[in-house]
């Protein structure tokens, strides 16, 4: 469905990341995304960081469109369409959730729904997202920072591997930079641990016809954005290359 919604609340999550809340009745599941339209600027895919009747998107300022979103005020209106994509399979297995940077956004609805342990990774302490809220749902929340300013000094995959070796997890659910996800996937494969990873690609239509978000034979917008281990093994481009808006191959 396509709608225009009013932003009812904006919360600053970190120096460059904000969450926008709006009421929207569409039924959605954790891991799905929407297309957010800022008239005159752009329309971009955003994961939902809340999936109840009040929806939220969590936006890191990285380019023109996200800067325009950051310039919005409470009461302003945006266009939304969706929800799109498959979402996570919340199956009751003992789960380790790993979020890198703003990749935490689609994981928050997972943490509110199922019991899991959590790794939050970021470059630095001031970029760690959702720690306080996550501690309300998870008894075991571990932090990693690349610069060692908080928690484990290193990357989220190294920390996750240590936890996998201590814990008795049955699956890993994760979202974050693709290089991180690629190493995490390899770590899981070495341990025979199934994964569900949320991936992203440049997107135009979001409804499965234009082909701009192809990853191998899969459409990230409708066959994804969540891919399990079996499908990840069939994606030679995963962790290596993406497509630009013209469809050219670009190394990650």
């Amino acid at each position: 469905m396509s709608d225009v919604v009013r932003i009812k609340r904006i919360s600053q999550e970190s120096k460059d990341t904000s969450t926008l809340a709006f009421d929207w009745g569409a039924h959605t599941v954790p891991g799905q995304f929407i297309m957010v339209w800022i008239p005159g600027i752009d329309e971009i895919p955003m994961s939902l960081s809340s999936t109840g009747s009040e929806k939220t998107v969590t936006v890191r300022k990285v380019g023109d469109a996200t800067s325009a979103i950051h310039a919005l005020q409470e009461g302003d209106r945006i266009g939304v369409r969706g929800p799109y994509g498959n979402g996570f399979d919340l199956n009751g297995l003992r789960t380790l959730v790993v979020g890198g940077g703003v990749g935490m956004a689609p994981l928050m609805p997972v943490l509110r729904t199922v019991y899991a342990d959590l790794v939050i990774g970021a470059r630095s302490a001031d970029e760690i997202l959702f720690e306080e809220e996550a501690r309300r749902y998870c008894s075991n929340v571990e932090i990693s920072t690349d610069d060692g300013s908080l928690g484990f000094h290193g990357n989220a995959v190294q920390l996750a591997e240590a936890m996998m070796d201590k814990g008795d997890y049955e699956q890993v659910i994760a979202c974050g930079p693709e290089v991180m996800l690629h190493y995490l996937f390899q770590a899981c494969e070495r341990r025979g641990l199934p994964c569900q990873l949320s991936l992203e690609r440049y997107m135009k239509c979001a409804v499965g016809i234009c082909g701009s978000c192809m990853l191998g034979r899969e459409r990230v917008c409708i066959d994804g954005p969540v891919f399990d281990s079996e499908r990840l093994r069939m994606l030679p481009e995963f962790g290596r290359s993406r497509r630009d808006p013209a469809g050219r191959i670009v190394d990650l």
Partner: peptide
């Protein structure tokens, strides 16, 4: 690159699109 987004609108059983000939 084709046109900037939005380049598609969903209609009943179809679409209105203006991709703008994106191609490599």
């Amino acid at each position: 690159d084709g046109h900037p987004n939005p380049c598609i609108v969903e209609t009943a059983d179809g679409y209105v699109n203006a991709m703008g000939l994106p191609n490599p």
